[in-house]
């Protein structure tokens, strides 16, 4: 059996408590348990994380580059969707 037979896994690492898991990369592993251990060795060996998720790459549904125009471009010229047109009352802090 070679690595090419092994499924691909996407690795998400949470670097600190309170932050969300961030995509760190991908790896090959025979199953989820081994994927988790490989991820520990590959992506957290310099103390980069406190928690790891592994997800089979086949479980990820991705947007298609062909649909890029219809998916993302229409949002480009609609600045009114950004919450920048509000008067911020005096005295409001931490915004």
């Amino acid at each position: 059996m070679t690595a090419t037979d092994w499924p691909l896994w996407e690795v998400f690492v949470r670097s600190r408590r309170g932050l969300s898991h961030t995509h760190a990369g991908s790896l090959h592993a025979p199953d989820a348990e081994m994927a988790l251990r490989n991820a520990r060795d590959l992506y957290t060996r310099r103390s980069e994380g406190v928690s790891i998720w592994v997800v089979p790459s086949t479980a990820v549904t991705a947007s298609s580059p062909d649909e890029k125009d219809s998916f993302f471009e229409p949002a480009g010229d609609k600045p009114y969707r950004h919450p920048t047109f509000y008067e911020i009352p005096e005295g409001v802090q931490h915004l």
Binding site: T2, A3, W6, L27, H28, N38, D41, L42, R45
Partner: peptide, 12 residues
């Protein structure tokens, strides 16, 4: 090692 991932694991 049989695969790159295991190479790193054994080196660790």
């Amino acid at each position: 090692a049989p695969v790159l991932e295991e190479d790193v694991a054994l080196a660790n």
